[in-house]
Simulated scan of single mutants.
Amino acid sequence: MKSLLNAVVRVLTAFDWPLLAMLVLFTALGLTVMHSAVGGTDWRFADQARNFAIAFAVMWAVALIPPPMLMKLALPFYLVGVVLLLGVEFMGETSKGATRWLNLGFARIQPSEMMKIAVPMMLAWYFQRHEGEVRIRDYLAAVLMLALPFLLIVKQPDLGTALLVFAAGFFVIYFAGLSFKLLAPVMIVGVVSVGTLIYYEEPLCQPGVDWVVLHDYQKHRVCTLLDPNADPLGKGFHTIQSTIAIGSGGMYGKGYMQGTQTHLDFIPERTTDFVFAVYAEEFGLYGGIMMLVLYGLLLARGLFISSRSATQFGRLLGGALTMVVFVYVFVNIGMVAGILPVVGVPLPFMSYGGTALLTIGIACGMLMSVSRHRAGKT
C-alpha cells in the first residue's frame, strides 16, 4: 500500500500544475477547432485526439527524468541526430521534391524534427560545462554546433524546420550571455536587406532572376508575400483566402462551425498550417486575442520555471524551449495573416499532426522536469 501511495505521489509531483492546466485548456481548444475544421468527428479528429494522448504520456515520462540525466543524454542525442541527418543527405527518401526522410528498416523517421530538442540540449550542456568562464571562442564553438544541423536541414530543403532549429540554438546562445552589441550589425544588415527587397521587388521577382541562396519555390514564397495578387489563383491563393477568412470573422466571429471560407473549402490546408484562419473566422478578433493571451500565459510560465532553475543547464534549456514555442506561434500566425512567407510551420496545439505535438510534449516535459528540481526545492 505504501509503495502504491509513493507511486501516486511521484506521478502527481511530476507535473507543474499551472503549466498542466494551460495545456489542458489548449487541448480542449485544439480539439474544438479541429472538429470544426474537419466538419465533424472523422478520422483526422480521432487521430488528433490520439496524438494529444500520446503527447501527454510522453510529456509525463520526460517530466520524470531529472535535469542531471538530461545533461548526460544531451551529447549522445545530438550526435545521433547529426549522424541521422547525414544519413538523410546520402540515403534519404525523396518526396515532393524534398529529401527529409530516412528509412531505418523498422521505421521511417524525419531526423530534422529531433534536432529541435537535441540542439538546445547540446548547447545548454556545453555552456553548463563552461559556466562562469564563457569566452568568445565558446560562442564560436556554439555557433558551429548550431550551424551544422541547420545547414544540413536547409539542404533537404526544409526551411521551416531549419528556422525552428536555428531559433532554439540561438536563444540558448543569447541567454548564455551573448552581447546585444554583437547582434546589432546583423539586425542592421537584415533591415537593409528587407528594405532593398521591397524597393526592388519587381525586377528581383522576375522569373529569370536567380536568388542563389534560395530555391525557386522559396523565392516564389517571398515574392508572393510581397504581392499575393500577382498570382491570385496560384501561388497567392493560400495567403489571399486566409486573410479573407480572418477579415470576415470581424470582431465576434461567425460562430462555431459557421465559417463560410472554411466549410466551402476556400482555405487550403485548413487542418494544418492555416488552422488559425479557421479559428479567426469563427471566433473573431476577440477570440484571437483570447488565444494570444493563453499563449502569453504559457510562455510566461515557461520563462518563470526557467528563471528558477537550480542550474544554468535548466535555465538555458527551459528558456530556449519556451521561446521556440513563441517562434512557432509568431511565424504561423504571421504567415496566415499575410505578413510572413508561407514556410510550413504548424500552430502549437492547434494544427493537425503527431510530430509537432510530440515535439511540444517533450519540450513541456523538460520544463516540468526543470520545475521539479528548481532552486530551493527538494
Rank of each mutant, 00 (worst) to 15 (best):
L86Q: 05
L152A: 05
A46F: 11
P348C: 03
H220I: 15
E133S: 14
I305W: 01
F313R: 06
L29C: 04
A310H: 12
L31W: 00
I339E: 03
V336D: 04
T260S: 13
V119N: 10
M366C: 04
S193F: 14
V212E: 10
V143D: 09
M1P: 10
S306K: 11
G195Y: 07
T355N: 11
E269A: 15
N332S: 12
V88I: 07
F266K: 05
Y252N: 15
V9E: 12
G302D: 03
A184S: 13
G132C: 10
G236C: 01
H130F: 01
G334R: 04
T378F: 07
L316F: 12
I305E: 02
R221Y: 01
V134A: 03
L303E: 12
P149H: 08
K72E: 05
K235P: 00
V11Q: 10
S306P: 00
N332D: 12
G361A: 07
L31G: 02
L164F: 01
D231L: 06
I109E: 02
M291H: 06
V222C: 04
G40N: 04
L73P: 01
L140G: 10
G177W: 09
Q156E: 15
G253S: 04
W17I: 08
M1T: 15
F52N: 04
T161P: 01
I117E: 11
V336T: 15
L20S: 13
R301F: 02
V62G: 02
G338R: 05
S309H: 09
L204E: 02
A277K: 07
G296I: 10
V345F: 00
L357Y: 09
V329C: 11
C364Q: 11
R137Q: 12
A63N: 09
F326P: 03
D16V: 05
F15G: 12
V327D: 12
T239L: 14
G247S: 11
L264T: 13
P157M: 13
G344C: 07
G354R: 08
E93T: 14
N103W: 05
P68T: 03
I267C: 00
